[in-house]
Write a protein that binds this DNA or RNA. Structure first.
Lengths: 140, 140
DNA sequence: CTACGATCTGGAGCGCGGTCTAGATCAAGT
DNA sequence: ACTTGATCTAGACCGCGCTCCAGATCGTAG
């Protein structure tokens, strides 16, 4: 097998980086910061081996980060999961609060988009007229 | 008039901050960075006075920033406007490119939202069952 | 055995977008 | 005249989220 992988359902840090979109630096950083649920397994030589469960968790992390969840909240979430069953209500509250923020963010972006679209329209119309005259608003 | 304003259609930096949502620090910072189209007028005493045109531009800036436009692009846009008529196609390209990014961002956020919503659903369902048994996925 | 690329650790450094401080000045109320 | 609060400038500083470096080690292909 040329492209190592050992087929033991575990991946090297490089492969994990590829699959998650995170850099190897970021993966080590996340681990140091306590953002992973379990400790990452290691080979006898000390190299990290990521399981499918690790990768799934990382993919969730990526989505939460991408939608703006701060690392501190992600860490809190990881801690809750790490502590095991019993705190599901708190996990739910955390996710739910984040979802609200995402919704608000989407609404804000949509408003921005409409303002920008209007500006684009102003210029497009201006140019369609053959840019003969300057825009009425000197700062448009 | 107790709450100064002089009614000469110009605002102090503090009033401008209130109306735009930017801090007075940010207003001075934006000015230093060349993000404003024209030089801000000053009183004889050296205090800034913002006109309605200034405020309108700032409101656009706020929307562009809120939707993720980097200060460098905003600066570029301000420069184009400052140079006056003739470069409208370039302004349009700049805005249009940004709009594309905003659209992509909205789509990305919507995907994140659906992943999060699914996770929330998993927890909600689990809790509805009376949290009798742990989640099948130890890292959910 | 050798070589080369991937990975390791600890810690420094960075880009962005402001934020804050110090010390002075201005302007308005009393 | 005095006090009080807003504003001024220049420049230092900050939080976040990585990113990069040095120097050592691992591990696989040839």
């Amino acid at each position: 097998m040329t492209t190592a992988e050992t087929r033991e359902e575990s991946l090297s840090i490089g492969e994990t980086a590829e699959r998650t979109g995170l850099s190897v630096h970021a993966l080590r950083f996340y681990e140091r910061e306590g953002l992973l649920v379990g400790p990452v397994r290691r080979t006898t030589g000390g190299r990290r081996r990521y399981t499918a469960v690790d990768v799934d968790w990382l993919l969730i992390c990526v989505k939460l980060r991408e939608s703006g969840m701060p690392l501190a909240d992600l860490k809190r979430f990881a801690e809750l999961v790490r502590r095991g069953p019993g705190n599901e209500p708190e996990r739910l509250r955390l996710l739910d609060a984040h979802q609200q923020r995402v919704d608000a963010q989407i609404r804000a972006l949509e408003e921005c988009r409409s303002v920008i679209a209007w500006k684009v329209g102003v210029y497009a119309e201006h140019l369609a007229r053959g840019e003969a005259e300057g825009l009425w608003d000197p700062r448009a």
